[in-house]
Simulated assay, not measured.
Amino acid sequence: MAMNEGQPLWSRTDYLIADLIDATNTCTWMVQNKDIPRRNQSKFPDPYPRPGDAPKKKISAAALESFRQRTAPKG
């Protein structure tokens, strides 16, 4: 079995199944948020992880607040 950084490589079928999972999650999100104002909608679903994808970075609350303060509109 071929390996990718210690992980087995995915087949074409595996990728198609991951795409179906993403499509199903997106459709479900769209139906759930259909009549809800954009500011009140739930978070868009994350894509199903693929091999070789870097893990998402965790952002601390302090770093997020610092970013918001730096990018807030002046005035």
Rank of each mutant, 00 (worst) to 15 (best):
E65I: 09
F67L: 13
K74C: 02
A61Y: 08
L64V: 04
R70F: 12
N33S: 06
D35C: 04
A63F: 02
A54H: 09
D14K: 11
K58I: 07
N40W: 11
M30F: 13
D14A: 12
A61I: 06
P51Q: 08
D46E: 07
W29D: 05
D19G: 03
A63L: 09
R68S: 05
A62Y: 05
A23N: 02
T13P: 01
F44H: 06
R38L: 14
D46N: 04
T13E: 14
P51A: 00
L9N: 12
K74I: 12
N25G: 00
N33E: 06
A18P: 01
F67G: 02
S66M: 06
L16G: 02
K58Y: 14
K74Q: 10
Q7A: 10
P37H: 11
Y48L: 00
G52M: 09
W29H: 15
K58S: 03
R50G: 01
I17R: 13
S42C: 01
P51C: 01
T13M: 06
A61D: 13
Y15V: 03
K58P: 01
M3D: 12
N33H: 07
L9D: 12
L20G: 08
I17Q: 09
E5V: 02
G6E: 12
R68Q: 13
M1C: 03
K58F: 13
V31M: 09
N4H: 14
R70A: 15
A63W: 10
A2V: 12
P49S: 01
D19A: 08
K57H: 05
A2W: 15
P55V: 08
K34L: 15
P49H: 04
P55W: 12
K57T: 06
R68H: 12
F44M: 06
K43E: 01
E65M: 09
Q7I: 12
L16I: 05
R68F: 13
S11Y: 13
D46A: 09
A18Y: 02
K34Q: 09
Q69D: 05
R68C: 06
E5H: 14
N40R: 13
A61N: 08
A54S: 07
Y48Q: 06
S66G: 02
R50C: 00
T28H: 10
A2H: 14
M1R: 08
M3E: 13
G52W: 08
K57V: 03
K34H: 13
V31I: 14
R39C: 03
T24L: 10
P8A: 14
P49W: 06
D19H: 11
T13H: 08
R68G: 02
M30W: 14
C27V: 03
K34I: 05
D46W: 01
S42N: 04
L64A: 11
P47W: 00
A18H: 05
R68K: 15
E5T: 05
D19W: 10
D22T: 02
A18N: 05
M3S: 14
C27Q: 07
Q32F: 12
R68P: 00
T13K: 10
K56C: 01
E65Y: 13
L9H: 12
Y48I: 00
P45Y: 04
Y15L: 13
Q7V: 14
P49T: 01
K74G: 01
T13N: 07
N4L: 15
D46L: 06
L16T: 03
L9W: 13
W29T: 04
K43A: 04
D46K: 03
D35I: 01
G52E: 05
Q69S: 09
S60E: 03
K56V: 04
K34V: 03
T13G: 04
